[in-house]
Design a protein around this nucleic acid. Structure first.
Lengths: 347, 347
DNA sequence: TTGATTTATTGGAACGTTCCATTTATAGCG
DNA sequence: CGCTATAAATGGAACGTTCCAATAAATCAA
């Protein structure tokens, strides 16, 4: 009952008194085998404690059934949600995806990508690490492996992208703030090495322009996309000569940080300073005050990305259309109760 | 420059004018090769766009360098943190771990385990899904694959476990509550199909007994290990004839739910009802009020588990000692400012 | 120079599958 | 009964590596 050097298909064949070919056929569920034979073989498989060797099989077979998901930050619930969305659809397609985390590290990402390719994956869904150069994916393109980007895009890549409509989301949020009567607005967090940043900031800028807020009445503070980053952003902004009264934050984590920092200064988020987040993570609705945020449906986008990948594999192509997911401003309490009722300057 | 049917080691050999054996040696970084030859070969590797086929290699080589991490719930930051802790140590050991999520589903877990084995992993770190039967791991044991359990253990398994000292953590937290003057205590959330549950509940019970709280002054409410579960638990408990004034929660998510539910009833967590969580996730310190919780150092335990795995692989054994991680009660604001200064009944 | 020793390189078998082309057994038909 | 048609099972080559044993080339000792 212990481990006598790994059982193979030949051991099964011997045990069942058939040929290795027959065993192979049974393993693949071929209908060419007489049912009684199949039963006999299956019993032998159990008896010898056989483990299928996919590596050996892939040597002959065209393609494997494993897909790699390369995620920039698994500890961020937003991306974790996306990952499980993907998983859900792969599972129902009988595929087991392997997840690898890059922790926003391009070097690590390169290693991970290499390893996944060596493993012979059939396709790759990637949420690229910050600072990824497009050269990193050249190689993947040359070997003709299906790849799709999720959530983030690279500047000049031709790889299909599944991402939310960042521009529109930022536009909506900014318009909301302006509608509340705010005239000096901030954009907090994120950094310009991310395409997403430019999309969201672009939406902010355009909304300001379209709705009559002068550029000199806006302030943009780059920063870490974390609570800590949010705290720092607020401190910077409130130190300005004419500080803003409201902020659109790059993501919810930044927004949480901003709210925390406000409280620490004795200011009440919503009443004294309006803040809106981006992504609408689960915590957003549980905060005090509940955070107004741009909902992005990360799980849904994950599912979409997985479907695109499945389609690509099936049709043996490396091209697919981009997909821009709808966004949705969820209004809660962090921008005050209702329209402009005497909003004074903060600090 | 497109994909002419996958380059192999022989293509490289032809390109570089050497034998396949030489190429293989270069690939493995053997010192037996003349440096100039190695350079020539490496250039050829670049030129033909070669991708190493690990499956083929594993056919000959003893063991692969991939390790599987099977996680019960990746969307739970607690487990995500643990996973990245593991990743960190594998990375510095030159190993790329593949993560698979089971979403607390034993059937899914079985599939994932099977797939990982077929892929020829060198070892497996598993945080078992709720409701896992120990039969699921019989097969792994018979093939002699190194396995370690992280965070959770199975009732009668002999597989090594890396987990926090749940009993002691619960004991400390309960003692803290009693020290604050509470005399009617609740234990909220979790369900008895998890060994962890019994450990934590056991700590709670023993502390109560040791510190003079009668069993009839305690109430235990099972429930989902989520915010929602916490809300439900509080509602149940406050409906009792003599409701508790403090609760130890199975984990932080439950604690957050309890605090939310308190607020909804107009009660102030900390002042009107004391709550302590378990796990000390990052959000705990950012809540209002900040949550008192039993810190478990999930990342550290993840690292520990990875080290144990590495050691097992290296020494070709399937056995290792359990490791119980130290815990640490982090006192914040959710149990009130300080000792017993007139704590009235809630509700 | 010759043989022994060291340094580089190489051919071939093996790993565990799949799949094609055959073979063998079974049934059907006149 | 002999023949073909169908069903079931099989042997062997191939997949892309590694590794051992063997060869070839270079160096050294005497």
């Amino acid at each position: 009952m212990a481990s006598r050097a790994k059982a193979t298909i030949l051991d099964i064949a011997r045990e069942a008194g058939v040929s290795k070919s027959t065993v192979s056929l049974v393993l693949q569920g071929s209908g060419l085998i007489r049912p009684e034979t199949a039963v006999k073989v299956r019993k032998a498989i159990e008896d010898v404690g056989y483990v299928y060797n996919r590596g050996a099989a892939n040597l002959r077979k065209a393609h494997s059934n494993v897909i790699g998901m390369v995620i920039n930050d698994l500890t961020n619930p937003f991306f974790a949600e996306m990952a499980v969305g993907m998983e859900r659809v792969f599972q129902s397609a009988g595929i087991v995806p392997f997840i690898a985390n890059t922790a926003e590290n391009p070097v690590r990402q390169e290693e991970v990508l290499k390893s996944l390719m060596e493993q012979g994956v059939a396709g790759l869904i990637v949420s690229p690490a910050r600072g990824t150069t497009s050269g990193a994916f050249r190689r993947l393109e040359t070997v003709g492996l299906p790849v799709v980007f999720a959530m983030r895009r690279l500047p000049e890549s031709r790889i299909p992208v599944i991402a939310p409509d960042n521009h529109r989301g930022a536009w909506l949020a900014t318009a909301h703030l302006i509608g509340k009567g705010h005239r000096r607005l901030a954009f907090f967090g994120g950094s310009s090495d991310l395409v997403v940043y430019h999309e969201r900031l672009g939406g902010f800028r355009e909304a300001c322009e379209a709705l009559g807020i002068a550029k000199r009445d806006t302030i943009v503070v780059e920063g870490e996309t974390s609570r800590k980053g949010g705290i720092a952003c607020l401190d910077t902004a409130l130190a300005a000569a004419e500080p803003p009264t409201a902020a659109l934050c790059f993501n919810d984590a930044v927004a949480f940080g901003v709210m925390l920092a406000l409280r620490k200064r004795g200011l009440e988020p919503g009443a004294d300073f309006a803040v809106v987040g981006f992504d609408d993570v689960i915590e957003a609705q549980h905060y005090m005050p509940a955070l107004t945020s741009v909902a992005v449906d990360s799980a849904g986008l994950g599912e979409r990305a997985a479907h695109v990948m499945l389609k690509m594999i099936q049709s043996r192509t490396t091209r697919a259309e981009d997909h821009i997911g709808a966004v949705n401003l969820v209004i809660r309490e962090s921008c005050g109760p209702d329209r402009h009722k005497g909003m004074g300057d903060a600090a």
